[in-house]
Design a protein around this nucleic acid. Structure first.
Lengths: 234, 234
DNA sequence: TGTATTTTTCTTGTCGACAAATAAAATACA
DNA sequence: TGTATTTTATTTGTCGACAAGAAAAATACA
């Protein structure tokens, strides 16, 4: 050890701790590796990440601010539950935001936007082809988030990202519970959305965004309906 | 000092530190006591609040998550600027959210909601009457936030609250710069909005919400327009 | 055996310290 | 006098420790 050695492991630089923990935990929550309701223990996380509890806590504050975890003073933190009783509020907001973001993308996109959107579209198509549910869910969200970015309204983009995150968790639950489906139809719809955006056809973009969102809502409602039937049968 | 004495000052209980700091700083940012661009110094805040830096930092993480401050690793934190170049995105989102929240309140309000909304309406009217700009701005935001709560969609409510916060900062700037105006017209419009909500007249609520938002946008645009004229005259 | 109380264990909130990174001030040089 | 470099001061990120609060386990009692 020379005098210039720092106290950080060679792969981690000072100031990067909180973000690393935040990114990893966020992905685990969204992929349901950490399912809704599961407890979060700072001491264990500190051991796992080989950090003290302070940066762990800061990452947890960030996750709480995004509604991904629930915290109360002096009590265990846990991964936030999905509020199945009030899914209609989620659907309501999702449909409107699909419309708004797709519409704004048609209006405001720039030359550098379309290659990014197309890249995520290709990733999505590849995930459908290879029947990789996790990748499909993640690339779908990334595709629509890129569209929102092209719309250039940070307020709508941030709300939409939050909805897409929640949608990832719901879809992950769906794909864990039922025979996995990889509909080519959604790939085709994404292509139509891209064409409308490129053509700056604001009304078509709005209409396609709405129809696409309503498909997703219908898919999620199937999950909810099946659960109810199972409960009644008991 | 007996063995049962705790380490917390008598007026503060363990676990309340972060929230206290967060609440106070948030109010100071929204009232422009801490103006846009001003530096935030953890050490000074720790001295001011008589706490160690750890809870200060946690409060700052919360404020950063709400866009009220900007942080980068290993650098000074500062109060976030108001992006005057992109105010149109703010207006766009504000108008849509005024419509959506007012509409949903007309649809979904419950008996306990209207007294709360009326309470804030009265506070607003009193602030206009007594020509108290700070109170007027704050009670206006509280009034509309209560309407959003009555609409019972947490996704729209959270976006709207963020927009109302930003609107508070912008209006505070306006009222610091120009002869203060206390228009009775806004008090009357609030009363009309309440009546439409009470009557469950969704379309009237939407229309009134939109018109009201457009008035606010116009008021803020006056601020922007005047600055431009002054620059040209130099 | 069930319930109430006490004790022990565990987790969270905060503390003050250390050191890395950055900013400010001082010094050196052309 | 302006600029580059070095030194000093300040701020931030994280550490490990202490103790309050909550949860779990053990004990006591009817």
């Amino acid at each position: 050890m020379t005098d210039t050695d720092n106290n950080y492991p060679p792969e981690r630089k000072r100031g990067s701790g909180v973000k690393m923990v935040y990114d990893i935990l966020r992905d685990e929550i969204l992929d349901l590796v950490l399912p809704p309701g599961s407890p979060i223990d700072e001491v264990q996380l500190a051991e796992r990440f080989k950090l003290s509890r302070t940066p762990i806590r800061e990452a947890l504050v960030r996750l709480a601010g995004e509604g991904l975890i629930d915290t109360l003073p002096n009590r265990s933190t846990m991964v936030s539950n999905i509020d199945f009783l009030n899914l209609h509020t989620f659907f309501e907001a999702l449909v409107l935001m699909y419309r708004v973001t797709t519409r704004l993308a048609a209006q405001n996109h720039r030359p550098e936007d379309l290659p990014v959107i197309r890249g995520f579209h290709e990733d999505y198509a590849a995930a459908v082809q290879s029947r990789d549910a996790l990748a499909m869910i993640a690339t779908n969200a990334a595709f629509h988030a890129a569209i929102a970015e092209a719309g250039r309204n940070p307020y709508f983009t941030s709300l939409f990202r939050r909805l897409l995150d929640e949608g990832r968790r719901i879809l992950r639950l769906y794909y864990q519970s039922y025979e996995e489906q990889f509909p080519q139809r959604f790939v085709d719809e994404h292509a139509e959305i891209i064409a409308a955006i490129e053509a700056r056809d604001v009304e078509a973009a709005d209409r396609l965004g709405k129809a696409h969102a309503e498909q997703i809502v219908e898919q999620v409602q199937k999950l909810f309906t099946r659960n109810n039937k199972l409960d009644i049968d008991l």
